[in-house]
C-alpha cells in the first residue's frame, strides 16, 4: 500500500486507537486527496466507524498522527475538528428529531456562520419542501438528505459519511449516488459503505479494512469497477 507523501487533504499516519486497554485500530495509514471520493469497506467490527470517530475527534489516538491540510488535528476536540472543515455524518442517521427541518439547518449553518441554504437545496430540492416538518417525522432517505445538507452548509472540504445508504430503499440509494457524484465536484468525500455495487459506481479509490487494519488499497478504476476489493472482506 502506498501512502502518498505529497500535500494531502487528510493524512492518517500509523495510528493506533484503543477503547481502554482494548486496541481496535492497528497501525492504520491512509490519505485522502482533494476532490476524491474514497470508500472504506470492511466487515462489521473491522474498525471502520472507530477510524471515522477518531478522525472526527471523538476518540484519541495512542500513537501516530492525523494531519488535515498539514496540520495535526488529533489534539483537537470533535467540535474543533468540525470547525476546521471536516464534517462527520454518523451511521445512525440521527438528526435533531425534536426540531423542525429548518431549525436543523439553522443550527448547522450557525455553527459555521452560513445561513444561505440555497446551494444545498440545489443538491436536495426535496429538503426545501420539508422545512416546516419535524425532523423526527422524516423518512430514512429524507433524514439522510437532511444530514448531508447540514454537512454541506458552509462548503466543507471533507465529509466523512458512515454507511449513508444503510437501510434505505434501492431507488433512494440511486438518488443518493447521483447526489454524491454532484457533491464530489466541490467537496471531498470519505465514505464507509457496505454496498459494493454502489462503491464500484462512486469510488475513486477504495481502502479495505479488516480486524483493525488496512489490508488493501485499490486505486485502479478497472479493479474498482470489477469489485476486486470484495476478496479482502
Amino acid at each position: 500500500m502506498s501512502v502518498n507523501d505529497g500535500k494531502k487533504l487528510l493524512h492518517v499516519e500509523s495510528i493506533d486507537v484503543s477503547y481502554g486497554k482494548l486496541k481496535v485500530i492497528f497501525d492504520v495509514s491512509l490519505y485522502i486527496d482533494d476532490g476524491e471520493v474514497v470508500v472504506l469497506v470492511g466487515r462489521n467490527g473491522a474498525g471502520k466507524t472507530t477510524l471515522f470517530r477518531t478522525i472526527a475527534g471523538f476518540l484519541k489516538i495512542r500513537k501516530g498522527a492525523i494531519r488535515y491540510r498539514e496540520e495535526e488535528i488529533n489534539p483537537y476536540k470533535a467540535f474543533e475538528v468540525a470547525q476546521k472543515g471536516i464534517r462527520y455524518i454518523h451511521q445512525d442517521k440521527h438528526v435533531f428529531s425534536t426540531l423542525s427541518v429548518s431549525e436543523n439547518l439553522e443550527l448547522a449553518g450557525h455553527a459555521i456562520g452560513n445561513k444561505d441554504f440555497g446551494p444545498v437545496f440545489e443538491y436536495f430540492p426535496k429538503i426545501e419542501t420539508l422545512l416546516d416538518r419535524r425532523a423526527g417525522n422524516l423518512s430514512g432517505g429524507e433524514r439522510q438528505m437532511l444530514l448531508i445538507a447540514m454537512a454541506l452548509l458552509g462548503k466543507p472540504d471533507l465529509i466523512l459519511m458512515d454507511e449513508p445508504t444503510e437501510g434505505l430503499a434501492p431507488h433512494i440509494i440511486t438518488d443518493l449516488a447521483t447526489s454524491f457524484k454532484k457533491i464530489s465536484k466541490t467537496t471531498t468525500l470519505f465514505i464507509i459503505e457496505q454496498n459494493l455495487p454502489l462503491t464500484a459506481q462512486i469510488a475513486d479509490r477504495v481502502y479495505c479494512m479488516r480486524e483493525g487494519g488496512i489490508v488493501a488499497e485499490i486505486e485502479s478504476k478497472d479493479e474498482i469497477k470489477k469489485m476486486s476489493f470484495e476478496k479482502y472482506l
Binding site: 476536540k77 470533535a78 468540525a82 431549525e103
Partner: peptide, 24 residues
C-alpha cells in the same frame, strides 16, 4: 433565537451538535 435552538438541539442529540461544530 439560535441559542434556544442550540439548547433544544443539545437535549435532542448532544453528540450531533458536536459533529456540526458546537462546543456543547
Amino acid at each position: 433565537s439560535t441559542l434556544g435552538t442550540m439548547f433544544r438541539g443539545l437535549q435532542s442529540n448532544e453528540e450531533k451538535l458536536k459533529f456540526i461544530g458546537y462546543d456543547t
